[in-house]
Measured scan of single mutants.
Amino acid sequence: TEEYTYTDKEKADRAAKEWANRGYTVTVTQDGPTYRVRVG
């Protein structure tokens, strides 16, 4: 499991979509002003 942190919702959504397109399980959680994209 890897985790990426973004401050921009659009970038987080785009990253999540790209990982999902590659067949990974993706979870996006909002943590205050940041968005965490957990992959795998």
Rank of each mutant, 00 (worst) to 15 (best):
T34A: 09
Y4P: 02
E3F: 08
D31G: 03
V26R: 00
T7K: 08
Y6H: 03
K17H: 11
E2A: 14
Y24N: 04
T27C: 14
A15Y: 05
A12N: 00
R36D: 01
K17D: 13
G23I: 01
E10I: 10
Y35F: 13
D8Y: 04
V26W: 01
T25Y: 12
A16F: 04
E2D: 11
N21D: 15
Y4V: 04
E18H: 12
T27M: 09
R38N: 08
K11T: 14
E18L: 09
V28H: 01
T27V: 12
G40M: 14
R36T: 14
R36L: 13
A20V: 12
R14G: 07
D13L: 15
V28A: 02
T34Y: 15
T27K: 06
T5S: 10
Q30D: 05
T29H: 09
P33K: 07
V28R: 02
T1M: 13
E2S: 13
V28S: 03
E3Y: 11
Y35S: 02
Y4Q: 04
T34C: 13
G32R: 01
T25M: 11
K11V: 12
T25N: 11
K17T: 10
R14Y: 09
P33Q: 09
D13Q: 11
W19A: 05
G32P: 06
R36F: 07
V37I: 08
K11R: 10
D13H: 12
K9S: 07
T25L: 12
A15W: 06
V28C: 09
T27Y: 08
Y35H: 04
E10N: 09
G32H: 03
T1D: 10
D31H: 08
V39K: 03
K11L: 13
T5E: 11
K11H: 12
Y6K: 00
T25H: 14
A16I: 06
E10F: 09
T34M: 13
T29W: 12
A16W: 03
K17Y: 11
Y6Q: 01
Y6F: 14
K9L: 08
V39C: 04
E10L: 10
V28T: 05
R38V: 14
E2P: 08
Y35L: 04
Y6E: 01
D13R: 08
K9Y: 10
V37K: 00
Y35D: 00
N21P: 01
Y24K: 04
G32T: 02
Y6T: 05
D8E: 08
K17G: 07
A15E: 06
N21H: 08
T27P: 00
G23Y: 02
G23Q: 02
P33A: 09
Y6C: 03
E3M: 07
G32M: 01
Y4W: 10
N21Y: 08
W19I: 05
V26L: 01
G40R: 13
T1W: 15
R14I: 12
A16G: 05
G40S: 15
K17M: 12
Q30F: 07
A20H: 09
T29Q: 08
W19N: 03
T1N: 09
V26T: 05
Q30Y: 07
G32Q: 01
Y4K: 04
T7A: 11
P33T: 09
T7I: 10
D31E: 12
A20W: 11
V26E: 00
E18F: 15
Y6P: 00
E3W: 11
Y4E: 05
R22M: 15
R36P: 00
G40W: 13
W19H: 05
A20F: 12
Y6G: 03
R14V: 09
T7M: 11
A16R: 04
R38P: 00
N21W: 06
T34P: 13
A12T: 03
Q30K: 13
Y35V: 05
A16Y: 05
A15G: 03
T5P: 04
Y35K: 01
R22Q: 14
A12I: 01
A16S: 05
T25G: 05
Y6M: 02
E2F: 15
R22A: 15
T1G: 13
N21E: 15
G32E: 02
T7P: 10
G32V: 01
V26S: 03
E10A: 12
T7W: 12
R36E: 03
K11Y: 07
V26G: 00
G23P: 00
D31Q: 08
A12M: 04
P33F: 07
P33G: 11
W19R: 02
R14D: 10
R38A: 08
D8G: 03
T27W: 07
E18V: 07
D13G: 06
E18T: 05
T5D: 06
T1V: 14
E10T: 09
D31Y: 08
K9R: 11
A15P: 00
Y6D: 01
Y35W: 15
G23K: 02
Q30I: 10
T25P: 07
E2R: 15
W19Q: 03
D8N: 10
Y6V: 02
T27L: 08
T29P: 00
Q30L: 09
T34Q: 09
E10H: 10
T5Q: 08
N21R: 13
D8R: 04
R14N: 12
Y6S: 02
D8P: 01
T1Y: 15
V37W: 00
D31N: 07
G40V: 15
T34G: 06
Y24M: 06
V26H: 00
T7R: 10
P33S: 09
R36V: 15
K9N: 04
G40P: 04
R38L: 13
K11D: 14
A20S: 09
R38M: 11
V28E: 02
R22T: 05
